[in-house]
Design a binder for these strands. Structure first.
Lengths: 188, 188
DNA sequence: CTCAAGGTGTACTGATCGGTAAACTTTTGC
DNA sequence: GCAAAAGTTTACCGATCAGTACACCTTGAG
């Protein structure tokens, strides 16, 4: 299997895992949906867990690339980017294929603390925290670490609520809240 | 099986499902851990899904009873209760058995919109939203619905982050954030 | 061409999945 | 006491789980 074939396998597996969940997706279903035989899959990944980790790494890459690019498209100044982040989230929530945050979902299914899958999820959230903290610093916030934390809490809360309630409203609620926090962090 | 035996089954099943997840918990494990035979379980619940719904109803009852009681213990005025809510959350995060929010976890594993399990999770969040909105009204917030939403977003975000990162810090971060939002909602 | 090397599909492993049939034990009503 | 009803246990169902043995086929080198 050529390297790009391997990438294609991970890409297709990502779709299936995100749509149906991790435990609910058997290797046989993966074979049927990716068109790659089980033997070939196990040539590149020793276990299902290893495949899932590869899928999550791709997801992290894809999501952050999309998110940060979209935020940059929607706003010019660091302060505006905070608000635009929630517009971008709102667009995500509207997609038919939206199933919440894949890393939150992964963490829900793999509760063991030292599980590589869970660690991948934790890493994703840490990188997002760094992104928001950096943005807060650029915006000139009094306490960038605090503002970064706050925005991330709002983002995660909005994802959970939009996913469970099936509404995009949490994106708006979170944006309104972010505006208050932003004003508070920048004023005087 | 006496009715209280049925309750005991649900109570023990709750522990196992919360600890290990839903798909990862087979009926055989449930038999081993509850001491109730499979036939007896299926006398009271036609399917695993029905049992899970019963478990979630109990969890909703238990969690909200504990949470609201703890908030009332920690604070007297409605405004202070908002802040105390995050102290209560912090205590929850510290428990060894803490595995995040069982309803978020359930929603992650059962993505089909009309699944009774998912609907139970959505119901739990709606009831919490009503609780916070009511508290906001009592506190005299300018826009109680908005403040209720905001606090709920913070709570869900704190749960997700504390669970994935293995820290109780999000409870403090969320409390600090809540203070800002509360001031904003109450000021002239 | 031949031949070796490596990727691929078929068919299978034992274990476990959710769920059930039927024999057995306990409780209940009279 | 005595039978019916209710609850429980054992043993099992076909399906699916993650993972593998092995034969087959394609490909590139000489």
């Amino acid at each position: 299997m050529r390297p790009n074939k391997k990438d294609e396998l991970v890409r297709k597996a990502l779709t299936v895992f995100y749509r149906d969940g991790f435990h609910a997706t058997g290797m046989d279903k993966l074979v049927a949906e990716t068109g790659v035989s089980k033997t070939s899959i196990y040539k590149h990944f020793r276990t299902k867990e290893e495949l899932i980790v590869a899928v999550l790494k791709l997801r992290d890459e894809n999501f952050r690339a999309w998110f940060e690019a979209r935020v940059d498209e929607l706003a010019d100044t660091p302060a505006d980017k905070f608000l635009a982040a929630f517009d971008a989230l709102g667009e995500w929530f509207e997609e038919d294929s939206y199933r919440g945050c894949m890393f939150i979902n992964a963490g829900a299914e793999y509760q063991c603390k030292d599980d590589p899958i869970r660690m991948e999820a934790a890493h994703h959230k840490q990188v997002l925290l760094d992104y928001f903290t950096d943005l807060a610093r650029q915006a000139g916030a009094r306490d960038p670490e605090a503002l970064g934390c706050q925005i991330l809490l709002l983002k995660e809360g909005a994802i959970v609520m939009s996913s469970l309630m099936g509404t995009t409203k949490p994106a708006c609620d979170a944006k309104d809240t972010a505006r208050i926090l932003l004003d508070h962090a920048l004023k005087g």
